[in-house]
């Protein structure tokens, strides 16, 4: 029997549902973004996100099933993001998934959103080989993850202050660019010289695989002020963008490559919204080539939040026999490496 899994994702401001076959073939990937709605408030408003999820959940699920051309009765399981994320938003997806799975007589799988991002790389014909190293970079995360085998990811390094995506957003704001900052800086940097300014790279000790981007933000602010006084700010914007982006990307590449050597992995994976950054992809490609291992990164639509990655991760949960109970809860600060199955991370009530 073919393994069709319905994935549901409502951890932040995207209501998403997808059908994935055998953990690798995406049959549908529906994403209803609330970004426009939240822009009005200058950021994601949890209560408004939760209200929207309740309105969108069934239309999105229905569209995912119809686009895939499958019925609930064809499914192997219903998978849902159980954390981390906004608790009220997560609860809408978790509750709807439970209702669907219970009524359709299907197993329920509670997926770790971060693990989902990693598994976006497995939604392809060509499968990454383990052990692998994965860099998850987004507005909320900058994590260097070692994946020795399915189901046991651990974090080797993470950001101590801003996430890489946040650094891009804040840099874009300083440069007077739009939101989200990553694509805006990426585009502007194409016409600039990355060596034009020497922005700082936080070292954090020789053996640390952690990141820090808060100093960089300050350095950019000072340079922008200096250029404004010199009267050439407008002309130097592309150089500033290129050098700023270079400072972020080079640290990400350096640390990822150091981890690759240290852990003897067979491949390198990128995930999360910032994985769509062209400079990051290009430089990581060069570095991976030098290390003699393949680099994987998902197409942009699978880099940002989506439900296909959740359905894909669930495929590996099922292979490990990890099914959730009807008492599955939502976990706003679920750590990587934890797979939620019940009311708490340690126990089940029935």
């Amino acid at each position: 029997m073919a393994g069709y899994i319905l994935g549901i994702e409502t951890s932040c401001d995207e209501t998403a549902a997808a059908v994935v076959r055998d953990g690798r073939q995406v049959l549908s990937n529906i994403i209803s973004s609330q970004a426009e709605l939240h822009r009005h408030y200058g950021g994601v408003v949890p209560e408004i996100a939760s209200r929207r999820h309740v309105e969108l959940i069934l239309p999105v699920v229905d569209q995912a099933l119809q686009t895939a051309g499958v019925n609930l009765s064809d499914l192997q399981a219903v998978a849902v993001t159980a954390g981390p994320g906004l608790v009220g938003a997560l609860l809408v997806g978790v509750s709807a998934a439970k209702g669907l799975a219970w009524a359709a007589g299907l197993p329920l799988v509670g997926v770790n959103h971060l693990e989902g991002h990693i598994y976006a790389n497995f939604l392809a014909e060509e499968q990454p080989e383990l052990p692998a190293l994965c860099l998850v970079v987004s507005g909320g995360h900058t994590d260097l993850i070692y994946l020795p085998e399915h189901g046991s990811p651990h974090i080797l390094g993470r950001t101590r202050d801003d996430a890489a995506g946040e650094a891009f957003d804040k840099g874009a704001r300083t440069l007077g660019l739009g939101y989200p900052g990553g694509p805006a800086i990426d585009a502007l940097a194409r016409g600039g010289d990355p060596a034009a300014f020497a922005f700082p790279r936080a070292r954090l000790g020789d053996d640390s695989l952690d990141f820090s981007f808060s100093g960089l933000k300050t350095a950019l602010l000072l340079e922008v002020e200096a250029r404004r006084r010199a009267g050439d700010l407008a002309d130097r914007l592309p150089d500033l963008a290129a050098a700023y982006q270079e400072a972020i990307v080079s640290v990400l590449v350096d640390k990822a490559l150091r981890a690759v050597r240290e852990y003897q992995v067979k491949c390198l994976l990128l995930a999360g919204g910032v994985a769509a950054n062209s400079a990051l992809r290009r430089q990581m490609q060069v570095a991976a080539g030098r290390a003699g291992i393949p680099l994987f990164y998902p197409p942009p639509v699978l880099c940002t939040d989506n439900a296909a990655m959740i359905a894909c991760a669930a495929h590996y949960y099922l292979l490990a026999g990890q099914v959730a109970g009807w008492d599955l809860n939502a976990f706003p600060s679920l750590p990587l490496g934890k797979r939620p199955q019940g009311p708490s991370l340690e126990e089940r009530i029935c």
Partner: peptide, 19 residues
């Protein structure tokens, strides 16, 4: 309760749709 109502309604929607 906003959250309580959404848990009930989302669950009910899931059941109603599946059946």
């Amino acid at each position: 309760s906003f959250t309580g109502l959404r848990i009930g309604l989302a669950t009910a929607k899931g059941i109603s749709f599946a059946l």
